[in-house]
């Protein structure tokens, strides 16, 4: 199989992430979409009232009323002053325009999550066709993997265990390689930098260890 050059793959991935942001206004996240899809299938559609239409002004007014009822005016004034001081500006009283970024985020339909995950499969097929033709490969993994673990029950177990560990780590860190590695690192998010160093670093170390030991 002929792979794309690394630089071309990098450019393509960047283009996909940018296009996703420009069209959907959300960060590219494969595991996030998979989680959303599973949750929607498990829990059903959002509860009534969650998707009811609310204008930005209504939304803001509702949150303000709730804040007033829960914390009281004195606590709100203190928080406003503290927040303004921390930001280096003067307290701005009860005026804000915070609803705009929130209003852009709304639940996405099930078909969009399924379509995105299906497109990953279709994209893989297309890249194979572009690279010179479609050829199915039923082997478990690379020659190095087979040399290390064979092609019997042990190799299946190792692959299954690896998949479970990847899924567990993805849930624990709140994202996968696309979310942390592509979008988080490019935005210099500290959590994503740590996560990416952890999973790539661990992968390199384990590969070197396996190569030395097996």
């Amino acid at each position: 199989m002929t792979y794309w050059p690394a630089w071309l793959s990098g450019l393509a991935l960047a283009l996909v992430a940018l296009t996703h942001w420009l069209t959907v206004r959300r960060m590219l996240a494969v595991s996030g979409r998979f989680t959303q899809l599973v949750n929607r299938l498990r829990e059903g559609p959002p509860a009534e009232g969650d998707e009811g239409a609310m204008s930005e002004a209504e939304l803001l007014a509702a949150v303000q009323a709730m804040a007033l009822a829960e914390f009281g005016e004195e606590a709100i004034d203190a928080a406003t002053a503290a927040e303004a001081e921390a930001e280096g500006g003067a307290p701005d009283g009860h005026t804000e325009s915070a609803a705009a970024p929130f209003a852009q985020v709304s639940p996405q339909p099930l078909w969009l999550h399924a379509g995105f995950l299906g497109a990953l499969f279709v994209g893989g097929l297309l890249s194979m066709l572009v690279a010179g033709g479609l050829s199915l490969d039923w082997s478990l993994a690379s020659a190095g993997f087979t040399a290390s673990f064979g092609d019997g029950a042990v190799s299946y177990t190792v692959l299954l265990l690896g998949g479970v560990l990847i899924g567990w780590g993805t849930r624990m860190s709140g994202g996968c390689t696309s979310g942390h590695g592509l979008c988080g690192v490019s935005r210099a998010q500290p959590g994503s930098l740590v996560a990416t160093c952890a999973f790539f670093g661990t992968g390199i170390v384990v590969s070197l260890l396996l190569e030395a030991l097996l």
Partner: peptide
């Protein structure tokens, strides 16, 4: 996250 009444949350 914006300054204002909602920052109390």
């Amino acid at each position: 996250k914006h300054a204002g009444t909602l920052s109390v949350f």
